[in-house]
Amino acid sequence: MPTTKHPLPQVVSPEEWEAALNRLLIKEKEHTRARDALSAERRKLPMVKMEKPYVFQGDEGSVSFRDLFAGQRQLIVYHFMFAPDWKAGCDGCSWVADAMTHPAHLHARDTSLVMVSRAPLEKINQYKTRMGWTIPWYSSYGSDFNEDVGATTEEGERHGASVFLRDGNDIYRTYFTGARGVEYLGSHWTYLDLTPFGRQETWEDSPEGWPQTKPYVWNRRHDEYDG
């Protein structure tokens, strides 16, 4: 049976392991409560009204910004990096999309989740079919939406998530996160964080000799891994 070539943490008795685990769980509970407090602060953020009548392209044709809510009061938009001249969508954004939940769970709490990209709808649907996704995905091609919300800048495409609240016909933007903030949406990172090797990236504080590579060089689209 194969064994790891990397040095292992200290091997202890079941009693010592449980004691060490319980000490860690106390810290994890403190982290959970701190995250809850941060979420409460997020819910109290001021909002900004969205004034422009954006039009998007979806499988049902041209739709309004309000249509993206699909009858719900809250909307989460994942800004998927996919420029009009790209052959495929962003591999990192594809990680996030792979982890997205069944919409019924969000709809039960008056919330919709969609993805929006600048690529034309034809390209989006080709890539969506390749990846096997059923997530609602709209094209903002030809509109100012991406630029207005900071998802496209002079430097290029930017991934992230925006949250919107609908009050009658009025729509308000309540939150945005980008960069590593989107890890909160992707359970793959969460799962890896539970393992001894972690994400296996050089920025992590891991035992000497643990397997590590530079960030962003190892992950692939799910149909591109060798073997």
Results as ranks from 00 to 15, higher is better:
153 T>M: 09
90 C>L: 02
72 Q>D: 12
26 I>N: 10
120 P>D: 15
126 Q>C: 01
1 M>Y: 05
139 S>Q: 04
136 P>V: 08
69 F>P: 10
166 R>L: 09
115 M>G: 11
189 W>M: 09
65 F>P: 03
188 H>R: 05
55 V>C: 08
175 Y>G: 07
212 Q>G: 00
161 A>H: 09
203 W>E: 12
54 Y>D: 11
92 G>C: 09
9 P>S: 09
65 F>C: 05
13 S>F: 01
38 L>S: 09
7 P>D: 06
205 D>I: 09
175 Y>C: 02
133 W>I: 03
215 P>E: 12
18 E>A: 14
37 A>T: 03
164 F>C: 05
17 W>H: 07
12 V>M: 10
75 L>E: 08
12 V>S: 13
101 T>C: 00
142 G>R: 02
213 T>Y: 09
43 R>P: 00
80 F>W: 05
110 D>L: 04
67 D>Q: 08
220 R>V: 04
24 L>S: 14
168 G>V: 09
218 W>S: 13
14 P>A: 11
216 Y>H: 15
102 H>D: 15
222 H>C: 00
89 G>Q: 06
208 E>M: 06
6 H>T: 13
22 N>I: 03
64 S>A: 07
226 D>I: 04
183 E>P: 00
36 D>N: 12
178 G>E: 11
39 S>C: 05
103 P>Y: 06
213 T>G: 01
81 M>I: 07
45 L>A: 14
74 Q>V: 09
115 M>R: 09
140 S>K: 02
145 F>W: 08
56 F>G: 02
206 S>Y: 06
14 P>T: 10
209 G>V: 11
159 H>C: 03
224 E>C: 04
118 R>P: 01
63 V>D: 05
206 S>W: 01
100 M>N: 08
131 M>E: 12
121 L>H: 14
98 D>R: 09
154 E>D: 12
121 L>K: 09
179 A>T: 15
167 D>W: 00
37 A>H: 05
90 C>A: 10
149 V>L: 07
55 V>E: 14
31 H>E: 15
219 N>Y: 11
171 I>E: 04
27 K>F: 06
169 N>D: 15
81 M>Q: 08
121 L>V: 06
197 F>G: 03
179 A>W: 12
11 V>E: 12
174 T>V: 13
80 F>H: 07
219 N>D: 15
145 F>E: 05
103 P>I: 01
85 D>A: 08
104 A>L: 06
64 S>Q: 04
22 N>V: 02
186 G>F: 07
102 H>K: 09
160 G>E: 07
90 C>I: 04
208 E>L: 11
39 S>L: 14
18 E>Q: 15
97 A>F: 10
185 L>V: 03
37 A>E: 13
165 L>K: 14
37 A>V: 06
40 A>R: 15
196 P>T: 10
203 W>L: 02
36 D>M: 08
219 N>C: 02
196 P>Y: 04
95 W>K: 14
128 K>Y: 03
58 G>W: 01
130 R>P: 00
32 T>E: 15
25 L>Y: 10
151 A>K: 03
175 Y>T: 06
131 M>L: 13
51 E>M: 05
227 G>I: 07
131 M>A: 10
118 R>H: 03
190 T>C: 01
48 V>Y: 00
200 Q>E: 10
13 S>H: 08
66 R>H: 06
178 G>N: 14
226 D>M: 04
17 W>S: 08
